[in-house]
Amino acid sequence: MHEAKICLSLIDLAETHLTRAGGERITALRLEIGDLSGVIPEALEAAFPICAAGTRAENAALHIDRTSGRQLLLRDMEIL
């Protein structure tokens, strides 16, 4: 439940940076999820296609690097 909300924040953030970079759409996103972030990577992966539908991140590949700590970061993305 919580992951759906985080997914929407992720897409918002990604689309903001896509616009800033003058891109058209997002093809891949790379995240860093800490084990103390409170986010379950599998739940985020499950929520992503639904949340991304109809956005400029639709069909983007999600790469997740797991780390220790509390951070929940959008590291970088691939755009067209």
């Binding site: 985080i6 924040s9 953030l13 058209e24 093809t27 929940l72 959008l74 970088d76 755009i79």
Partner: peptide, 20 residues
């Protein structure tokens, strides 16, 4: 029109919960 091989990488390095 854009093709996947034209994709470019953009660094973001921001917290997803930044807004909250």
């Amino acid at each position: 029109h854009p093709h996947p091989e034209d994709a470019r990488r953009v660094a973001v390095e921001r917290s997803i919960l930044e807004e909250n």
